[in-house]
């Protein structure tokens, strides 16, 4: 029981981190109908900026963090304005999404080259001391990830519901043409979404490199990529779904790893495939994801 409880806490912590990345994907999708496959590379890029500012240039974490967040946000806006915006008029969303795959390849290749075989730490303040409560022990970094991510998610949801941007984004998702006629500037909505997505990705990246991996190395991108199944599981057009999807992916990963000995027939390391299996199961039952809106059209 204690084992299960500690796995649930761990899974929720990892899941909340995935949710941050997935939320970025959803916000971009809602504001421009583009699936941003470059989200993992934005995470890697911003996290690399923070980690190298700390590890290689000796800056403090509290200076390195905003640097990384800002760098990813600026790069994301550049990708949107320079590359993706070109497709807005023609609504060629498949082409625009494929283009983000190209961006992802270029960016990841370059960040990977810079990282090389190093493992860079970010100098984050949360340590690895084990905190005991309710009869279980959880590493401090994981508690921090859970608390900070949950806080960010709540603040973000509030902002989406209250702010002009939130209204504009939902209107754009509903019907871009009408939104545009009503004075919503689609370019600005999209750029804001990209900036937010980049920033969120880096916040998530900082927790991923604190735990489960020992620092930033090239394996982090495979972890970051699991935000895509998270976004799909929840439904690409639902911010609530992104959070639910993130949690489900985090939980599935931790539970499969935790009960590894009972799942030996599935082979070692199945936790890395588990989120994708979960995605297939959800899609079979609900093609639009758990919280996604089903189109009325049947073909």
């Amino acid at each position: 029981m204690a084992q299960l409880l500690s796995m649930l806490v761990e899974g929720a912590s990892l899941g909340a981190v995935y949710a941050l990345v997935a939320l970025g994907i959803v916000v971009i999708y809602k504001s421009s109908s583009v699936v941003n496959f470059a989200q993992p590379s934005l995470l890697m890029f911003g996290t690399y900026v923070t980690a190298s500012a700390y590890s290689l240039h000796g800056l403090s974490f509290w200076v390195a963090l905003p640097l990384g967040v800002a760098a990813a946000a600026v790069l994301a806006v550049l990708v949107d304005r320079v590359l993706v915006a070109r497709f807005r008029r023609t609504q060629a969303v498949v082409a625009a999404s494929i283009m983000t795959i190209g961006v992802d390849v270029v960016l990841l290749t370059e960040v990977d080259r810079r990282i090389g075989s190093q493992i860079l730490t970010t100098g984050d303040p949360w340590g690895n001391e084990v905190v005991r409560f309710l009869g279980i022990g959880v590493a401090e970094a994981r508690i921090a990830a859970l608390v900070v991510s949950a806080l960010l998610l709540v603040l973000f949801q509030l902002w989406l519901h209250r702010s002009d941007f939130g209204v504009a984004m939902r209107a754009t998702a509903e019907d871009p043409e009408t939104a545009s006629l009503m004075g919503i500037r689609l370019g600005r909505v999209s750029a804001t979404a990209w900036a937010v997505a980049g920033a969120l990705a880096v916040c998530a990246g900082l927790f991923i490199v604190a735990y489960p991996s020992p620092g930033l190395d090239t394996s982090v991108e495979a972890v970051a990529l699991r935000a895509l199944p998270a976004a799909i599981i929840g439904g690409l057009d639902s911010t609530t779904g992104a959070i639910a999807g993130g949690l489900l992916v985090g939980l599935s990963e931790v539970l499969v790893r935790g009960y590894g000995e009972h799942l030996a027939f599935l082979g070692q390391g199945f936790e890395e495939a588990a989120p994708y299996v979960l995605m297939l199961v959800v899609l079979l039952a609900r093609p639009a994801g758990l919280f996604g809106i089903r189109e009325a059209v049947r073909v």
């Binding site: 699936v35 999404s97 990529l225 199944p229 690409l236 199945f270 297939l280 093609p287």
Partner: peptide, 27 residues
């Protein structure tokens, strides 16, 4: 899934096959 999912959605769903495939190939 290939019949019901459209465009990019299928792209993300098909990612699953790669990771499941990799898992099988290694184990």
């Amino acid at each position: 899934l290939a019949g019901r999912l459209k465009g990019i959605y299928l792209g993300v769903a098909s990612l699953a096959l790669v990771f499941i495939g990799q898992h099988v190939l290694f184990t």
